[in-house]
């Protein structure tokens, strides 16, 4: 008997409206039709269905604009479906970008409280983990300086350290694994591995085939908003690599 279904996506469709006419000219106002905006739909995702069971690590792969980030937004309940259904059973933690809620005028320490609140941690909960977060971020005495003085690497390290304090049931990561220098990357991957071990389901978005092959049990391949493949990671990634090589060969021949 298979593990329980944690993520159930049925016939998912999400569209954006393309705004063609952005200005109202005097002529169009006088003649008419200036305020009516033609807004064709762009389906970022359409007809996507899959299920993810407990214990699986799902990789999402596809070229730029394939709909990977939109799928993450739908799984995180940031975007609601225009078609179909998304059912996620459990508490979701999303790392789509690190330190997105930072306030540049506040110190690193104050931003830990703020960022943790965005991620759903209470002040008491974060106070218990404060020393661990500061130590992991390697910011030392800079922690009490306003983060407008931080480099982008320092901000990312702080953002990752707060996010790594989470204990999520379902973890969604979108290209946030290349943080800091090589040593910090090694440390952050180890920490992520710990989070993954404790999570019921992990969803990873990456362009790095080898990275997904090493970590994922299953893979989902998206192209132009549609499902191109879903199944065991090795099989889907092999098909994706073969298709990419075909495109490269065609480009080289053209």
């Amino acid at each position: 008997m298979s593990n329980p279904v944690v993520i159930d996506v049925q016939d998912l469709g999400i569209f954006y409206r393309l705004q063609q006419r952005r200005r109202v000219g005097i002529k169009s106002l006088l003649v008419g039709g200036g305020l009516r905006r033609e807004a064709p739909l762009l389906w970022a995702l359409r007809g996507v269905s899959f299920q993810c069971h407990e214990g699986q690590i799902l990789g999402i792969i596809g070229s730029n604009g394939a709909g990977k980030s939109t799928l993450c937004l739908a799984l995180s309940k940031i975007l609601t479906p225009d078609e179909g259904k998304v059912k996620v059973r459990g508490e979701v933690s999303t790392l789509l970008s690190l330190g997105a809620g930072f306030n540049r005028d506040l110190s690193g320490r104050e931003n830990i409280y703020l960022n943790a609140a965005f991620l759903g941690l209470s002040r008491r909960g974060i106070e218990a983990k404060m020393d661990e977060i500061i130590e992991f971020s390697e910011l030392g005495e800079f922690i009490d300086q306003p983060i407008r003085f931080y480099s982008s690497g320092m901000k990312s390290r702080l953002g990752f350290s707060v996010a790594a304090a989470l204990d999520p049931e379902i973890l969604i990561l979108d290209e946030v694994l290349s943080v800091g220098d090589h040593a910090f990357q090694k440390k952050s991957r180890k920490r992520l591995q710990g989070m993954m071990d404790r999570s019921r389901v992990i969803v990873l978005v990456s362009h790095q085939v080898q990275f997904l092959r090493d970590l994922c049990t299953h893979c989902l391949w998206l192209e132009q908003g549609q499902l191109h493949g879903f199944g065991k990671a090795d099989e889907v990634l092999a098909a994706y690599v073969a298709a990419s090589e075909e495109v490269d060969a065609a480009d080289a021949g053209a």
Binding site: S76, V92, T94, L96, S97, A100, F118
Partner: peptide, 9 residues
């Protein structure tokens, strides 16, 4: 907008 598109809250 970047924040709204990154964290569910």
């Amino acid at each position: 907008d970047a924040l709204i598109k990154s964290i569910p809250f």
